[in-house]
């Protein structure tokens, strides 16, 4: 019945196998050395380092994080100390960015403002990620009716202008730092969910997922071990950019008086407070505005660089 029968020789132990099965083991080792050891993240990092703009973005982000963490150390004054006689003084040696109407040191307030901005960025984006990844996984992996419902809700979120949505949320929740996190976080889930869903849909059909299924791997294992690691790159890119958006929205909400409440220093609030003095004391507006601009730019540049690093169309 078996045509190979005549050369069928029973193999007893390990050392026999090597001899019979493959003569090329040694050679493969040799060739293997030629390919350097690398992984997606190492490769991406190598490309990121070569991208000057992305490195500038990364530097800005790192500096901002350091400033936020160490603001009590860096700031020369207490941000809420009012010195009456110093009201609305321009930049000077003692007060680099000048002082505001109440005589507070703007440099110190900008430094402390970084805390709120970075915190909003990180916390709000984390909330978006938590909701978005969960619902995205649900809709992409299982499909069917849950997919239909989740995606229609996401559509509704998309139909709302972001800022308008944030304003509505804040009026409902009431002002306050915590509510800013929640509002921005909730508003951001839909994009994350959509992004994650689409990458799951493309990965789901891959043969290595089928292989895992054929083994009897559970859905949770497939999502955590296979789908997550393979769909992470676009989510990292998106979230980096999203931090910038969250910072802007926080600034806008605070500007409108719906966000962070005084006296906590927030860049957006500082802008709105300085509105009436734009002609007499332009530095009041200039420095917080610049801080927002630089920080957001930093995140966008980094996000852009990450995208190019993860998706190297030019990689040859």
């Amino acid at each position: 019945m078996y045509p190979f029968k005549e050369d069928k020789n029973k193999i007893q132990n390990d050392s026999d196998i090597e001899g019979i099965i493959d003569e090329s083991v040694e050679l493969e080792t040799e060739l293997g050395k030629k390919y350097g050891k690398s992984s997606l993240y190492k490769d991406a990092w190598r490309r990121l380092v070569r991208n000057k703009l992305a490195m500038i973005g990364l530097a800005i982000v790192i500096i901002m994080v350091v400033i936020a963490l160490l603001s009590p150390v860096i700031a020369p004054y207490d941000p809420n100390d009012r010195i009456k006689e110093l009201s609305q003084k321009g930049p000077s040696y003692q007060h680099w960015f000048g002082t505001d109407i109440l005589g507070r040191d703007i440099f110190s307030r900008v430094i402390y403002g970084a805390r709120i901005s970075m915190l909003v960025g990180v916390v709000a984006v984390s909330i978006s990620l938590a909701i978005g990844l969960f619902l995205g996984a649900l809709s992409g992996f299982f499909g069917g009716i849950s997919d239909a419902i989740i995606m229609r809700i996401a559509d509704i979120f998309f139909a709302f202008p972001y800022i308008l949505g944030a304003i509505v949320m804040m009026t409902v929740l009431g002002p306050g730092v915590l509510n800013v996190f929640i509002a921005i976080g909730i508003l951001g889930w839909a994009s994350v969910a959509r992004l994650f869903r689409s990458s799951i849909l493309s990965i789901k059909e891959k043969e290595y997922i089928e292989a895992a299924r054929a083994l009897g791997a559970s859905n949770a294992r497939i999502i955590l071990k296979h789908i997550f690691p393979n769909s992470f790159a676009p989510i990292i890119v998106y979230s980096t950019m999203n931090v910038g958006t969250a910072i802007i929205v926080e600034a806008a909400l605070s500007f409108l008086g719906l966000g962070v409440q005084p006296p906590t220093p927030s860049w957006g609030k500082m802008l709105s407070e300085s509105m009436s003095y734009i002609n007499t004391a332009p530095w009041l507006m200039f420095f917080p505005g610049l801080a927002i601009l630089i920080t957001v730019l930093g995140f966008v540049l980094l996000g852009d660089g990450l995208r190019d690093a993860f998706d190297p169309k030019l990689k040859r």
């Binding site: 003569e23 090329s24 050679l27 493969e28 040799e30 060739l31 030629k34 390919y35």
Partner: peptide, 20 residues
């Protein structure tokens, strides 16, 4: 034939097929 085709970057000196 044993082995796999070589990478075209840093080809071995000598005959490219010698390894296999």
């Amino acid at each position: 034939i044993k082995g796999t085709p070589p990478s075209l970057i840093d080809l071995p000196k000598g005959c490219t097929f010698a390894l296999r």
